[in-house]
Design a protein around this nucleic acid. Structure first.
Lengths: 132, 132
DNA sequence: CGGTTGTTCAACCTCTAAGTTGAATATGCG
DNA sequence: CGCATATTCAACTTAGAGGTTGAACAACCG
């Protein structure tokens, strides 16, 4: 795994056990034992998963006697979500523009060129994006 | 890496090279050679990265003579974004509720308990969340 | 056909992730 | 203190990721 923040976050999220741990923590703080209870793996393995989440900044841990209560930290999730949204928003714009173009054609052609026109226009839209 | 869709997507995003490939593809389709050009690694390594992205459903590939044009597919990103938003939205609600509580205190106490009251209330809010 | 270009396959190396077991550390309790 | 509980550390195994090089495959071009 690369050592930048975004890579650490995505790598941490790439494991179902760790995602389940985060889901549990979204209900509130919990100790390692509590977190480990539902899983068929050893306590030490869960402890390792928590260390991964901690290094990614997704959980922070306090100290309460012999317990180490874990708490969810969502800041890295915001960053990850922000990275992803750069692409999903582009896609949304793309569909919006296609929609505009198609509607323009449909308005203009009450009896004009046939249905294949929509596909042609999609192609032209892609070319515009490539050039930018 | 686990074999579910979400794990595959997050694992694919956990590598800076692959994220850069997606960034390039957001500008439009590209061939393997074009994609590999900016990177200091071998063409074969880039080809492997593309295979990872393809298995995650983030790119689809056509065939144009000896070229294999790659295109970005954002559906898995939507899914990943949806998963993350379950947590960032919880966090937003949490802050909203805290804000309401703090504002309630400030309205009620024009001359009441001092500034430390805000911190106390934050603690109580956290306890409520733990119980849910 | 033979050569060139684009891409993938195969074998290999090295490093790390994820799991195990067993021992060590830290804290509360009788 | 001595023991129980919670958690981590250390050593090890297995499997996979990411990189390399060299060969193979596919399609165009003279």
């Amino acid at each position: 795994m690369a050592d930048d923040q975004l890579s650490a976050t995505f790598a941490a999220l790439a494991d179902p056990t760790r995602r389940a741990l985060l889901a549990r923590l979204s209900q509130g703080e919990a100790t390692v034992n509590e977190l480990a209870e539902p899983f068929p793996i050893s306590l030490q393995a869960v402890s390792k998963h928590l260390k991964v989440l901690e290094r990614a900044g997704l959980v922070v841990r306090g100290r309460d006697a012999q317990w180490r209560p874990c708490r969810l930290e969502t800041a890295p999730l915001e960053e990850a979500s922000g990275w992803i949204s750069r692409y999903t928003e582009i896609q949304a714009e793309r569909l919006d523009r296609l929609d505009e173009v198609v509607q323009g054609i449909m308005r203009r052609s009450a009896g004009g060129p046939a249905a294949s026109g929509a596909a042609d226009q999609k192609q032209r839209t892609n070319e515009e994006e490539t050039g930018r």
